[in-house]
Computed example of a mutant assay.
Amino acid sequence: MAEFIKLYDENPSEREIKRIVEVLKNDGVIIYPTDTVYGLGCDITSNRALERVAQLRGVKLAKANFSFICEDLSNLSDYVRQIDTPTFKLLKRALPGPYTFILPGNNNLPTVFKKKKTVGIRVPDNNIARAIVSHLGNPIISTSIYDEDDVIEYTTDPELILEKWDKLVDVVIDGGYGGNIPSTVIDLTSGEAVVLREGKGELTI
């Protein structure tokens, strides 16, 4: 049975954030709000939890395209190869915001992602997600939670999310109604910005 924790984006309770971080440190899997859709995630350093997330999404972990949720751009160099000034300026202008940037990964990627040459970086404009990452001390991975209903592609009501995921995850965070438009995905690996998926946010490139 998942814990259902209510948090407010303006001022998330530090006590509850610490509880969530403890769950993550113990190979837990959580569902949490972002500035777009609700995400399914875990600590990027926990192989056991990463396997669980991949299983829940029905994908092989080595081939999964999970994003890294970061607090800000300060730990970018931990996972990303050196980027040029125009690219950094674009990231600084866009983040925090509803974008996933595909960047060239470096050798510090967690073991399970070593074969991947790229990494998707997200810094959501959501205090809950960023507070979790801040207290954890490293990124969490993220993948959207889909709905089987073709009309409602993403579930937005936390109580309905709990109903569906109650026995599959450890914590469901109620951060209010989520959106149903995913992040815009922008590939920056070739030196030019290429939009791979139009989503929320209008960034002038």
Rank of each mutant, 00 (worst) to 15 (best):
P104W: 04
G41A: 06
S183A: 13
V53E: 03
Y99S: 03
K117Q: 15
R15M: 07
L203S: 02
E3D: 15
G175R: 11
S77L: 13
V29F: 00
D187T: 10
V21S: 03
N65Y: 02
D170Y: 00
N11V: 08
V123D: 02
V53D: 01
T155I: 15
V59H: 07
I186C: 03
D35Q: 12
N138I: 12
N26D: 14
P86H: 08
I141K: 01
P124A: 06
K114C: 12
V169K: 00
L91M: 09
G41S: 11
N107L: 14
Y79N: 08
V80M: 05
R48F: 04
F113Q: 14
N138H: 15
K6F: 07
D149W: 00
P33L: 05
E71H: 10
A49Y: 01
T155E: 13
V80E: 04
A54N: 11
T36R: 05
I20L: 03
A131D: 10
L90I: 13
K164S: 02
K18T: 09
D149P: 04
T143F: 01
I140N: 04
S144C: 08
D84F: 02
Y38Q: 05
T118E: 15
V194G: 05
I161A: 01
N11D: 08
L24K: 10
V119I: 12
K116Q: 15
N11H: 08
T118M: 13
F101M: 10
Y8R: 14
I141D: 00
K114T: 15
N26P: 07
T204R: 12
R81L: 06
V185K: 10
L95C: 04
S77P: 09
K89S: 12
P139K: 02
S183C: 14
P139V: 02
I17R: 02
D43H: 03
I152Q: 12
T204W: 08
L95F: 00
L50E: 07
V194A: 09
E3G: 04
R122L: 05
T156A: 10
E202K: 14
L160T: 15
G41K: 07
N127E: 12
E202R: 11
K6E: 15
E148N: 14
T36E: 08
D187S: 09
T156G: 07
K167A: 00
F66K: 10
L76T: 09
I69F: 01
P104H: 08
Y8P: 11
D27W: 01
E10M: 13
T36I: 08
K89Q: 14
V133D: 05
G28Q: 02
I30A: 00
R197W: 04
